[in-house]
Design a protein around this nucleic acid. Structure first.
Length: 466
RNA sequence: GCCCCGGUGGUGUAGGCCGGUCAAUCAUGCAGGCCUCUCGAGCCUGCGACGCGGGUUCAAAUCCCGCCCGGGGCACCA
């Protein structure tokens, strides 16, 4: 079994694209076959150099390794050889009709004037295409098919065309470029691909490709298709993503508003969670609606055990507590279920019997004078005045059945959180957070899982989910 | 308009090819409980589906027909 993933390096991979990659890779591994990565960069006008590496990085991150890598922009001579063979054997022809008039004839099932020209004249035209005689849109190589094929889209489909813009990898070396169906069919055969997994929007393409396989006497690979993937609240359009990034509407390809692999990585998702979600969608032609909730659930299950816990208060509000006994610090487990991981220290800011601490603005706004709450793992406090600052009285150290609120006292560090809607939330975190490394995923208790994005000039984390 | 694909609980999925063992699987979600010094995790219980109508058959989620609904394609993009 040989499978392949064939991305167009014109934009970043998102959760929809990697479905083909994960399924193809998974099947190849399951049956001890080969998995190929092939860049389909036959449109010089939209291939982007930096995307090759980004795509490789995204795939590796997902745990996908490929046994072979190809770039179609290195294979032009191969396509030319087949094109010439097809033309000289009368299975393809060079068409110089303009697109609308060809389409009119095609829709009626009639041949265009170019179709019946003799082979030597066709070859002459073909050489002319290669030699620069034809400008863009002046000539195209078409594969002959049954002109009465029920689907007009299949009739005499285009295989190669003239493109004069330079290619980011091979420059201006070529001016005739294959179109999708042509290069795919040739490559799938040449590379020995046995199973093709793709979205069902390719159903018509498969029909077109099959006509080429017939001309060449080849057996087409098994084709399996999956349905459309939609994700509420996620923009899954590559063109819009590219445009948005170019116009500065997004922070980059890893903007947390996007469902790109880069964005998921930045938000601290486990690649295994992405893998499982996608593989659980299976290989069915049914359209699927994935939700962020589902992705969060899969991820939470995987990272909950790994992520250490820290206190963080968003939009901090000062609290003064009177009558506090002389405690200097609190030591808490890094993870409640794994004492062996050790502890972190939360120092207290005290002057006499007055403790200064900070609560999350949201928590503070829900407190009423006279209510008792607990600074989690520390002490109970009865609110005496809403201030500002908030003022309260010490009400004992013993555990009480009252709301437990996270807090920060001495040595709090400022943290900036990039939220999924790209807004920024600022707050204070306990001092130990300053010692985290970039890339670490931790839980800010009762706030959510975050991934450390940068440490300078300030500590910045990216929000994953609750 | 033309060509094609599909419709199982809120969501995803198993089953459909080879009709019975499907009063329908698993996960997520939601509700409740236990546990927990997090509104997180874990554990337990519960809720909830074969698009509609005909046909074939002793028997249909599964096969056939019609309808309805959803999606895709009809580029000298991939």
């Amino acid at each position: 079994m040989v499978t392949r993933f064939a991305p167009n390096p014109n934009g970043p991979l998102h959760i929809g694209h990697v479905r083909a990659a994960l399924l193809s890779h998974e099947y190849a591994r399951m049956y001890g076959g080969k998995f190929i990565l092939r860049f389909e960069d036959t449109n010089p006008a939209n291939a982007v150099l930096e995307m090759y590496d980004l795509i490789r990085r995204d795939l590796r991150w997902l745990g996908i390794e490929w046994d072979e890598e190809h770039m179609q922009s290195d294979r032009l001579e191969i396509y030319y050889r087949y094109a010439e063979g097809l033309i000289s054997s009368g299975k393809a022809y060079v068409c110089t009709c303009d697109a609308p008039s060809f389409r009119r004839l095609r829709d009626r099932g009639e041949p265009c004037p170019c179709r019946e020209l003799p082979a030597d004249e066709q070859i002459g035209r073909w050489r002319g295409m290669l030699g620069g005689e034809f400008g863009e849109e002046k000539a195209v190589v078409r594969i002959k098919t049954d002109l009465r094929h029920p689907n007009p889209a299949v009739r005499d489909w285009p295989a190669l065309r003239v493109v004069t813009s330079p290619h980011p990898r091979v420059g201006e070396r070529y001016r005739v470029w294959p179109l999708y169906n042509f290069s795919v069919a040739i490559d799938d055969h040449e590379m020995g691909v046995t199973h093709v997994i793709r979205g069902k929007e390719h159903l018509v393409n498969e029909m077109r490709q099959r006509t080429l396989f017939e001309h060449l006497g080849w057996t087409p690979p098994e084709a399996l298709q999956y349905g459309r993937l939609t994700m509420a609240g996620a923009m899954l359009s590559k063109t819009q993503t590219i445009r948005g990034v170019r116009e500065g509407k997004f922070l980059g390809y890893d903007d947390p508003r996007l469902a790109t692999i880069a964005a998921l990585r930045r938000r601290g998702f486990s690649p295994e969670a992405v893998r499982q979600v996608i593989l659980d969608l299976g290989l069915t032609p049914v359209d699927a609606a994935l939700s962020w909730e589902t992705l969060y659930a899969y991820n939470r299950r995987l990272i909950d055990a790994k992520a250490n816990r820290y206190f963080f208060v968003a939009s901090p509000v000062e609290l003064l507590v009177r009558g506090v006994p002389s405690i200097e610090e609190v030591r808490l487990r890094l993870h409640p279920s794994y004492p062996e991981r050790g502890e972190r220290v939360l120092p207290l800011l005290r002057e006499g019997d007055v403790l200064t601490a900070y609560l999350a603005g949201e928590d503070a706004s829900h407190l009423e004078v006279g209510t008792i709450f607990r600074l989690k793992d520390l002490m109970n406090v009865e609110l005496r005045s809403k201030g500002p600052p908030l003022e309260g009285d010490f009400r004992g150290l013993e555990l009480m059945d009252v709301p437990k609120l996270q807090w920060v006292s001495a040595g709090g560090v400022e943290v900036e959180v990039l939220m999924p809607d790209a807004s920024l939330v600022r707050g204070l975190a306990e001092p130990a957070v300053a010692g985290l490394g970039i890339g670490e995923v931790v839980q800010f208790e009762r706030f959510g899982f975050v991934r450390v994005d940068s440490l300078r000039p300030r500590i910045a984390v990216v929000y994953g989910h609750r």
